[in-house]
Amino acid sequence: MTTWAMVADLRRCVGCQTCTAACKQTNDTPVGVQWRRVLDMEVGEYPDVRRAFVPVGCMHCDDPPCMHVCPSTATRKRADGIVTIDYDLCIGCAYCAVACPYQARYKSSEDAKRPDVATKCTFCVERIDAGLAKGLTAGVDPEATPACVNSCIAQALHFGDVADTTSNVSALLAENQHFRMHEELGTGPRFYYLWDKAP
């Protein structure tokens, strides 16, 4: 069964925030809301300082805590693993926002399309569905690929089906060492970070 996942190559990301801008333009999110953002992490102390740019957002977890706590059933998980929000059901209690260990959820009264309800990255689900309906391949054909991945100038972001061993993301995961954020919490995030070649 298809299982969509995002892969970010931390060695390639330059922190240009083009993915953030592309996401904002595609999804028309208001000021202060960034479904896809890039953290600028500085680690260590002078002179031993290292820096990493880390794309973050909804991890579309295997076992999403946001879905379990949602009192209105607005947050659901599709068979392909994409976690969605029904904006017509959501009451905007923000319980999902405090349940999310990735700070991926927002609630904004300035959101013209989705006022005062929970919002987050959707993996550009409408785009994927429309692309698949045309027979395109998500993660390969831009029309069936999330906007942030399409816009990445460094090819640091990748999208595809991790259940398919021949997919682009499966190949990347096989060729490189990777981790997932806060894996110890047992949420099963489907956002993989590449950090080195496979040994």
Binding site: L10, R11, V43, R50, V98, D196
Partner: peptide, 15 residues
């Protein structure tokens, strides 16, 4: 006391 989880990288990128 409600600090969130923050972000943590178990590995830094090898460049």
């Amino acid at each position: 006391a409600s600090l969130n989880q923050g972000f943590h990288l178990p590995h830094l990128p090898v460049r």
